[in-house]
């Protein structure tokens, strides 16, 4: 029971935060945030998605440190197909090529940058520069996509005993792809002249 909680408790939290973010960014999210304008609601959704990704990345870094230091982690299974021990604990593929940083740290830095750009736009939607900064955030998320593809290939084909699916890594991947998708739609709206930042007045 304790193992289940320590393993799946954090995962549920990360997925929940990301899921709420995705929900808010969709047209259905309008009911939940009735006074928010469309653009600001989608930006808030993006921020939550990025927060979920950042937290999940930090968690994979914690697991990486435990596996490197002690050889085991109470937060992650080491047996079966769905497990993170063989992926995050892999001697070769647990760090990013060339830069040599654990993938968790790469995710932390990536989502921090994305979060900063999105947060700045969210706080200043009325400013002209904010429209341009959406592009910056979008292109940073585009840079993250090859990393996601590479890590999925690693999980499915390259790690020892492949295929393995690391649930925490998958949670990070979902956040990155969702972040890209929502930013894409925000840009699309902006290009169509639908930069909607006027707060709605609730009707009685």
């Amino acid at each position: 029971m304790a193992t289940l909680l320590s393993e799946y408790g954090p995962l549920t939290t990360f997925l929940l935060i990301t899921g709420v973010g995705i929900f808010l960014a969709t047209p259905q999210g309008e009911k939940a945030l009735a006074t928010f304008s469309k653009t600001r609601r989608m930006l808030l959704g993006t921020l939550l998605v990025q927060l979920g990704g950042l937290m999940a990345s930090a968690w994979t870094w914690v697991i990486h440190n435990q596996l490197s230091g002690t050889g085991s982690s109470q937060f992650c299974a080491a047996e079966g197909i769905v497990q993170c021990g063989s992926v995050i604990g892999d001697a070769t593929y647990s760090v990013a090529p060339i830069i040599g940083l654990p993938w968790g740290v790469v995710g932390l830095l990536g989502f921090s940058l994305l979060g900063y750009l999105t947060c700045a736009v969210f706080f200043s939607t009325g400013e002209e520069w904010a429209k341009k900064w959406v592009d910056f955030a979008y292109w940073v998320s585009v840079i993250g996509l090859p990393g996601v593809v590479w890590l999925v290939v690693v999980e499915l084909f390259l790690v020892d005993g492949a295929p393995h699916i690391c649930p925490f890594c998958t949670s990070v991947h979902i956040s990155m792809v969702a972040s890209f998708a929502i930013l894409h739609f925000i840009r699309k709206d902006r290009d169509a002249g639908d930069w909607n930042i006027t707060p709605k007045v609730p009707t009685k």
């Binding site: 900063y116 750009l117 947060c119 706080f123 400013e127």
Partner: peptide, 11 residues
């Protein structure tokens, strides 16, 4: 600058 500075501190 406010939004950017505030975002910096928040992140």
């Amino acid at each position: 600058a406010d939004g950017r500075v505030l975002a910096f501190f928040a992140v």
